[in-house]
């Protein structure tokens, strides 16, 4: 790669590598995309659109990419029987993963409120009939990766990787080799995959951990932390979908998801066993 640009955005570390030079104007645009996205969806900022909805409900207009996110979240919600839901936000916060990072649970686990009758996600925005704290973390970071990569491709870049600390998308010829980080040992990997043009996302439940077995992946149907799956990886054509499927694999059978989405996956259960799609069965170290 010729050029590389690292920065902090939406609470994580980003790195963009390009085969051609990355001029200052393009770097500034990447930061602006992140800032705009954060200003819409961050539940950790007092001035975000999502925080306004949490205070008062009502209508939050969204840019064009909001429609795609809403459709994906709705599909994931339906195919997981409600296991994935943006309404999990207030349950995460109640368990202590809140805007102030208190990590102090204020309520017992409870199911998320139902989508129907409360949330209406249309092509032009989100309407909440009552105040509710939304969390688009299931797929939002992935969509921001897509927005950045698609912007760079539109500027003529033919060889690009946008990597948001392990959720990444690549455009270019050939492949790169990506290690699948060991869920219990960040100095090790459990296998490797080849990434051509497309997205690879990772999610693990055992890193963002606080309190007594509490972590950031909840089953929206119960409000409890998922403890049978500890790590998931998904290869898909775009990062938003791969990110969302990484979350969905914690609460749904891969076969159910495969009926709706085209993807490959590896997942690790809490006892250290793994499961994968046929194409990735050779990815794990024997």
């Amino acid at each position: 790669m010729t050029d590389s640009f690292g920065f902090q955005a939406i609470g994580t570390r980003w790195r963009v590598d390009t085969g051609a030079a990355l001029p200052p104007g393009q770097r500034a645009t990447l930061l602006r995309l992140a800032e705009e996205y954060d200003a819409l969806y961050s539940r950790f900022r007092a001035d975000s659109g999502v925080t306004a909805l949490a205070m008062a409900g009502g209508f939050l207009p969204l840019p064009r990419h909001g429609a795609a996110l809403g459709r994906l979240l709705r599909t994931l919600h339906d195919v997981t029987g409600g296991g994935v839901s943006p309404l999990v936000g207030e349950r995460l916060a109640a368990l202590g993963y809140d805007a102030g990072y208190s990590f102090v649970p204020t309520a017992a686990p409870a199911p998320s409120r139902a989508w129907e009758g409360l949330l209406d996600w249309t092509d032009d925005g989100v309407t909440l009939d009552a105040p509710a704290l939304l969390d688009v973390g299931a797929a939002g970071k992935g969509q921001l990766v897509d927005l950045m990569l698609e912007y760079l491709v539109s500027q003529g870049h033919e060889d690009v990787i946008v990597d948001a600390s392990g959720d990444m998308r690549r455009a270019g010829t050939g492949t790169i080799t990506v290690a699948l980080e060991h869920p219990y040992d960040p100095t090790s990997a459990i296998g490797t995959v080849r990434l051509g043009s497309g997205a690879l996302c990772a999610s693990a439940a055992n890193r963002r951990v606080w309190g007594d077995g509490l972590h950031h992946v909840l089953d929206a149907r119960t409000g409890r932390c998922v403890d049978t799956v500890v790590a998931t990886w998904v290869l898909a054509s775009d990062t938003m979908t791969a990110d969302g499927l990484c979350t969905a694999l914690f609460v749904a059978d891969p076969a159910d998801l495969a009926a709706v989405f085209d993807f490959d996956y590896v997942l690790v259960y809490s006892d250290g066993r793994a499961r994968s799609s046929a194409a990735l069965q050779g990815a794990l170290f024997p």
Partner: peptide, 20 residues
């Protein structure tokens, strides 16, 4: 699963959650 040290692998990227 079987772990191998990242130091011993020739990879371009790591996908996990330690930095996420």
């Amino acid at each position: 699963i079987v772990g191998r040290k990242l130091d011993d692998l020739a990879v371009d990227k790591v996908a996990g959650s330690s930095l996420t």
